[in-house]
Simulated assay, not measured.
Amino acid sequence: MNILALTIILLTIFVGSIITILSNHLILMWAGLEMSMLAIIPVLMFNSNPRSTEAATKYFLIQATASMILLLAIILNYHDLGIWQFHHNTQFYIYSLVLIALMMKLGLAPFHFWVPEVTQGVPILSGLLLLTWQKIAPLAIMFHISYYLNTTMVPLSALMSVFIGGWGGLNQTQLRKILAYSSIAHMRWMVAVTMYNPTMMLLNLVIYMFLTTSMFITVYICTSTSISSFTKMWNKSPLLISTTLIILMSLGGLPPLTGFLPKWMIIIELTKNNCIFMALSMTMMALLNFYFYTRLIYASSMTAFPTSNNMKTNTHHQNNKKHPFLSPLIIISSLALPLSPLVSSLY
């Protein structure tokens, strides 16, 4: 792809999300979502092949459907109140329509089916953009209406995402599908706490983006697409084995790593609001997520996959895929837990 065209496309993606975040006008929010959604389609089809075309088509159809539902809710709100903002007099069913549209855009259960398929069919860096930056704008709208969310739909969707994100990733062998189910599992924590403490959802989002970016960049540098190819990482990049182990344990929420901080604070917040069953379910299903992270750790760090003798010479070959931001990302992903007293004082 032409560098100028790629620059314009990426700029459109970022500007669209920023417009949604900063706007109070519903049409501008919707326009920002559409800018970001339409601009990412060429990025998903960066490698022109039938699989990426199919993934981009699935993504477009789901996102377009969600945008139509959101636009319908906006028009109905204007018909009832005559304003282009959400108001405390906005009808309950309109907030329900908005919530359904946002669940489709975020890939929350029961609208999660497109997330693993699209992530598996696109390039690794496009999948990174899909699972990180594209979550910001819908979550910003959810933050905006957090105190008017449906108190039945949100916990139900969070619980469904808990089980699907945990069980769905157990039998996966493709790394991008594992990271997609990991995204579904992390979305449940953000959605579950949004009704009670929206700013805590932002904390979880920021930490999730750091962790997922670190993992995607590691996979990109190692050129690994499946667990079987990931087991050969000791031949290609021996130093990345230990860093990958740390990132995966932090993704699983193991103390004393950074990933433990948002889970710990969200469980405390849910307990304070008498959501004991939800907190218990999310904690138990987090063990399933940690299991398939541990499986990756075991495959890459504790086993020597059978290889030919020629594979043993790969350690002498220089890896040309360098990323200057990987080191600070790993530090943030693993060593930020001592900041928890400072973070706790902000809530």
Score class of each variant (00 low, 15 high):
Gln120Asp: 14
Gly166Ser: 08
Gly166Asn: 07
Trp167Ala: 06
Leu139Asp: 14
Tyr147Trp: 01
Ala137Arg: 07
Gln120Asn: 13
Ser182Gly: 13
Phe143Cys: 02
Asn171Glu: 02
Ser146Thr: 03
Val162Glu: 13
Ser157Trp: 14
Asn171Ser: 04
Ala137Phe: 10
Met153Ala: 10
Met160Asp: 03
Ile145Gly: 00
Leu159Asn: 10
Thr151Asp: 11
Gln172Lys: 06
Val122Cys: 04
Phe143Gly: 03
Gln174Thr: 05
Asn171Pro: 00
Thr152Leu: 07
Phe163Leu: 13
Gln174Lys: 13
Phe163Arg: 08
Leu159Cys: 11
Gln134Tyr: 01
Leu139Arg: 07
Met153Tyr: 14
Ser182Thr: 09
Ser182Asp: 10
Leu175Trp: 00
Leu125Thr: 11
Leu139Thr: 12
Val122Glu: 00
Gln134Thr: 02
Ser146Trp: 08
Phe143Arg: 01
Ser183Ile: 06
Ser146Cys: 05
Thr151Gln: 13
Val154Arg: 11
Ile178Gln: 07
Val154Phe: 12
Thr151Glu: 12
Trp133Val: 03
Met160Glu: 04
Ala180Lys: 09
Thr151Ser: 11
Ile178Lys: 00
Asn171Gly: 01
Leu149Pro: 05
Leu149Gln: 06
Pro123Ile: 04
Ile164Pro: 01
Lys135Phe: 11
Lys177Trp: 05
Val154His: 10
Thr152Met: 12
Tyr148Ala: 03
Thr173Gln: 06
Val162Asn: 15
Trp167Thr: 04
Thr151Arg: 08
Gly166Arg: 07
Ile136Gln: 04
Leu175Ser: 02
Pro138Ile: 05
Thr173Glu: 06
Phe143Tyr: 15
Ala137Ile: 06
Leu125Lys: 09
Gly165Ser: 11
Leu159Phe: 14
Ser126Ala: 15
Val154Gln: 14
Tyr181Asn: 15
Trp167Gln: 01
Lys135Thr: 05
Gln120Phe: 07
Tyr148Ile: 00
Phe143Ser: 09
Gln120Ala: 07
Val154Ala: 07
